[in-house]
């Protein structure tokens, strides 16, 4: 699965994108964020408050309760500050 990161999430994790193999039992966006958070200090720093993190599945906004099955690109980023 391809994960892409933006803004301070990208900066804290240290890469713009990566391919990951998800363990069994990662069903929802919430599961994914909490699994990622445990992968190391950089992920912990980026995802210390997972509830504020926004996620897009194949470039569509998703809720944390949404299932991630079928998505080929999952984007993880802070609340947006455009305009």
């Amino acid at each position: 699965m391809k994960l892409v990161y933006f803004a301070w999430v990208k900066e804290r994790i240290g890469v713009a994108e990566e391919q990951v193999e998800l363990p069994a039992g990662i069903i929802t966006v919430f599961d994914l964020l909490h699994w990622l958070k445990g992968r190391g200090a950089n992920y912990e720093a980026a995802l210390q408050a997972p509830e504020i993190i926004r996620v897009a599945l194949d470039k569509e906004h998703a809720d944390h309760s949404d299932p991630i099955a079928g998505a080929s690109e999952i984007a993880i980023f802070p609340p947006m500050t455009g305009g």
Binding site: A7, W8, A75, F77, T81, G82
Partner: peptide, 25 residues
């Protein structure tokens, strides 16, 4: 809706040449 839904992020660059923080939502 552009402000709350369009995926853009702003970061500040300061007069003293340093990179400031990301603008808060």
């Amino acid at each position: 809706f552009l402000k709350t839904r369009a995926p853009f992020w702003k970061r500040e660059h300061l007069k003293d040449g340093s990179t400031g923080g990301w603008v808060e939502h």
